[in-house]
Simulated assay, not measured.
Amino acid sequence: MTDPALPTVLVVACALVDIDGRVLIAQRPQGKALAGLWEFPGGKVEPGERPEAALIRELDEELGIQVTEACLAPFVFASHAYDSFHLLMPLYLCRRWSGVVTQREHAALAWVKPSKLADYPMPPADAPLVAWLRDLL
Rank of each mutant, 00 (worst) to 15 (best):
D60L: 10
G31D: 06
K44M: 10
H86V: 15
G36S: 03
H80T: 15
K113L: 14
E52P: 00
L117T: 09
G43W: 12
E39K: 13
R57V: 07
Y120D: 03
L72S: 09
M122F: 12
G42F: 03
L129D: 06
G48L: 01
P74H: 03
V130Q: 06
D119V: 05
A33E: 10
G36C: 05
A70F: 13
F40C: 02
F77V: 11
P114R: 04
M89F: 00
A35F: 04
L87W: 06
C94K: 00
Q66A: 13
L91C: 10
I56T: 15
P90D: 03
D126F: 13
W38P: 04
A33N: 12
S98A: 13
V112N: 03
H86M: 11
A70Q: 14
A107R: 00
L72P: 14
P47T: 05
V67M: 04
P123L: 11
S115M: 05
A108Y: 00
L37S: 14
F75K: 07
A81P: 15
Q66E: 13
F40R: 07
K116R: 11
A73Y: 11
E49S: 00
L88W: 09
V112L: 05
V130L: 05
A54Y: 06
A127M: 04
L117C: 08
I65N: 00
P128K: 04
L34I: 05
T102V: 08
H106V: 03
P114K: 02
F75M: 09
G99V: 14
L93I: 12
Y92I: 14
L72V: 12
A73P: 01
V76F: 02
H106L: 05
